[in-house]
Simulated scan of single mutants.
Amino acid sequence: MELGLAGKVAIVTGSSKGIGLQTALQLVQEGAKVTLCARGEEQLKEAAAFIKSETGAQVLIVPADITKEEACKEIIQKTVDHYGRIDILVNNAGTSSANPFESVETDLWQTDLDLKLFGAIHTSKATIPYMRKVGGGAIVNVTAVLGKTPPASSLPTTVSRAAGMALTKAMSKDLGKDNIRVNTVCIGLIRSHQIELKWKKEAPELTWEEYSKNVVGPTIPLQRIGETVEAANVITFLVSDAASYVTGTSVNIDGGSGGTL
Rank of each mutant, 00 (worst) to 15 (best):
residue 222 L to E: 11
residue 252 N to Y: 02
residue 59 V to T: 14
residue 134 V to D: 02
residue 261 L to G: 08
residue 136 G to R: 10
residue 235 I to T: 04
residue 178 D to Q: 07
residue 84 G to M: 02
residue 54 E to G: 02
residue 202 E to K: 03
residue 160 S to E: 08
residue 13 T to R: 07
residue 32 A to P: 09
residue 73 K to M: 02
residue 157 T to S: 13
residue 95 T to W: 05
residue 206 L to C: 02
residue 182 V to H: 02
residue 241 D to N: 14
residue 208 W to H: 05
residue 70 E to Q: 14
residue 167 L to H: 09
residue 42 E to M: 08
residue 152 A to K: 08
residue 78 K to L: 15
residue 159 V to T: 15
residue 147 G to N: 08
residue 260 T to S: 15
residue 27 L to K: 07
residue 225 I to E: 06
residue 212 S to D: 08
residue 96 S to E: 13
residue 251 V to T: 13
residue 138 A to R: 04
residue 15 S to L: 09
residue 254 D to R: 03
residue 183 N to W: 06
residue 60 L to R: 03
residue 214 N to W: 00
residue 64 A to G: 09
residue 50 F to V: 08
residue 230 E to G: 12
residue 4 G to Y: 13
residue 172 S to T: 03
residue 217 G to V: 07
residue 114 D to I: 07
residue 83 Y to K: 05
residue 193 H to S: 14
residue 110 Q to M: 13
residue 228 T to L: 11
residue 33 K to E: 14
residue 2 E to F: 11
residue 78 K to V: 10
residue 174 D to Y: 06
residue 72 C to S: 13
residue 60 L to G: 01
residue 258 G to V: 09
residue 241 D to S: 12
residue 256 G to E: 10
residue 204 P to E: 14
residue 170 A to Q: 14
residue 166 A to I: 05
residue 237 F to L: 15
residue 243 A to N: 01
residue 30 E to N: 13
residue 65 D to T: 10
residue 168 T to M: 04
residue 5 L to Q: 01
residue 217 G to Q: 05
residue 196 E to Q: 05
residue 39 R to T: 05
residue 100 P to Q: 04
residue 162 A to H: 07
residue 243 A to E: 07
residue 33 K to D: 07
residue 173 K to N: 13
residue 5 L to E: 00
residue 184 T to G: 06
residue 223 Q to W: 01
residue 113 L to F: 15
residue 67 T to H: 09
residue 255 G to H: 03
residue 103 S to M: 07
residue 238 L to K: 00
residue 20 G to N: 06
residue 102 E to A: 06
residue 60 L to T: 06
residue 227 E to F: 09
residue 43 Q to G: 12
residue 177 K to G: 13
residue 228 T to H: 02
residue 101 F to P: 09
residue 57 A to G: 00
residue 142 V to D: 08
residue 260 T to M: 14
residue 249 T to I: 12
residue 224 R to W: 01
residue 8 K to S: 06
residue 114 D to H: 12
residue 133 K to E: 12
residue 174 D to A: 09
residue 207 T to K: 03
residue 203 A to W: 00
residue 121 I to P: 04
residue 1 M to F: 04
residue 143 T to V: 15
residue 106 T to H: 07
residue 121 I to L: 14
residue 253 I to G: 00
residue 244 S to V: 02
residue 226 G to K: 02
residue 22 Q to F: 08
residue 27 L to F: 05
residue 161 R to C: 08
residue 69 E to Y: 00
residue 94 G to H: 08
residue 230 E to F: 14
residue 3 L to W: 11
residue 125 K to M: 10
residue 174 D to C: 05
residue 200 K to L: 15
residue 118 F to M: 14
residue 105 E to T: 03
residue 241 D to H: 05
residue 90 V to D: 04
residue 139 I to E: 01
residue 194 Q to S: 12
residue 202 E to R: 03
residue 124 S to F: 10
residue 96 S to N: 09
